[in-house]
């Protein structure tokens, strides 16, 4: 395994608060090991800033193994950086070359206001879940787990949606700031399963409309799928569009309207 080091120029978005005016700051880093993760490289930068008495860059992360969805920023114009199916925390410096300039920006969307530097508020994703991203089963009232067989293919397809880590890269990468991939993944995870059928139409209608309260309109660019660390398929968006149109008819019937 080859031990290489890089000298890098970093252009990092600094913004002191939600209403402050932001700007790019340029930093030089030398002797960055290629084995380091991107976030460890940012840790090194922050150590240097602290040593110089400058306020470190706020960049959020938690599990650093690509599953919690806390981290995420635009790296050289790509959500989560250049590697496919890789969250920011799993990006390693071997993806860069000596002498590179790396531009680091926060995820942007009107409903992802910047909290500070690279940290943004992704609370609207929770609002979408609140609108119906659950199966209403109170604790203790569940039947035996093997009572309803779920075909393996169905379980696998539902899992592909359930794998979403809620990082918001889909919104950040979308030229329209649409939340379609996230919302569709969450809707289809439940809509595909037999357990999710009772609330299927109400869930779809409610979650889609909450999504539209916060996010732009999908124009099927497909950027979201490319940015997604879990490679959620675009098909879920089609399923959701179909379910939404059906829900408009179904719900009308369910409510006994003419």
């Amino acid at each position: 395994m080859s031990e290489e080091t890089l000298n890098l120029t970093l252009k990092v978005w600094r913004q002191e608060g939600p209403n402050a005016k932001g700007r790019f700051e340029t930093y030089q880093l030398s002797d960055i090991s290629t084995h380091m993760s991107f976030l460890e490289m940012m840790d090194v930068l922050n150590e240097q800033l602290i040593a110089k008495g400058e306020v470190p860059v706020e960049i959020e992360s938690d599990c650093r193994e690509g599953i919690c969805g806390t981290c995420g920023c635009m790296i050289n114009g790509r959500a989560h950086g250049p590697e496919k199916a890789t969250a920011t925390c799993q990006l390693h410096m071997r993806s860069f070359s000596d002498g590179d300039t790396i531009v680091v920006e926060p995820f942007l969307a009107s409903s992802f206001p910047i909290i500070k530097d690279l940290a943004v508020d992704r609370a609207p994703l929770d609002r979408i879940i609140e609108a119906g991203g659950y199966i209403s089963i109170s604790t203790g009232s569940a039947p035996d787990a093997n009572l309803i067989p779920v075909p393996k293919d169905t379980a696998d397809a539902a899992f592909d949606g359930a794998a979403c880590i809620g990082c918001g890269a889909c919104v950040a990468a979308c030229p329209n700031s649409a939340g379609q991939l996230f919302t569709s993944a969450k809707i289809q995870h439940l809509n595909l399963l037999p357990q999710g059928q009772a609330e299927r139409w109400a869930r779809t209608e409610s979650m889609v409309e909450t999504m539209e309260d916060y996010f732009g309109s999908c124009t099927n660019h497909g950027e979201c799928h490319e940015a997604c660390p879990k490679e959620i398929p675009l098909d879920f968006i089609a399923y959701t569009n179909r379910d939404y149109m059906k829900s408009k008819r179904k719900n009308r019937k369910l409510q006994g309207q003419a």
């Binding site: 790019f24 050289n76 114009g77 920006e105 942007l108 799928h225």
Partner: peptide
């Protein structure tokens, strides 16, 4: 379309879609 300060590096969006 959204604009990042550094220009966005599109991976899937093509000329036609944009």
């Amino acid at each position: 379309n959204k604009r990042y300060a550094s220009s966005q590096d599109y991976a899937a969006a093509n000329y036609a879609s944009r």
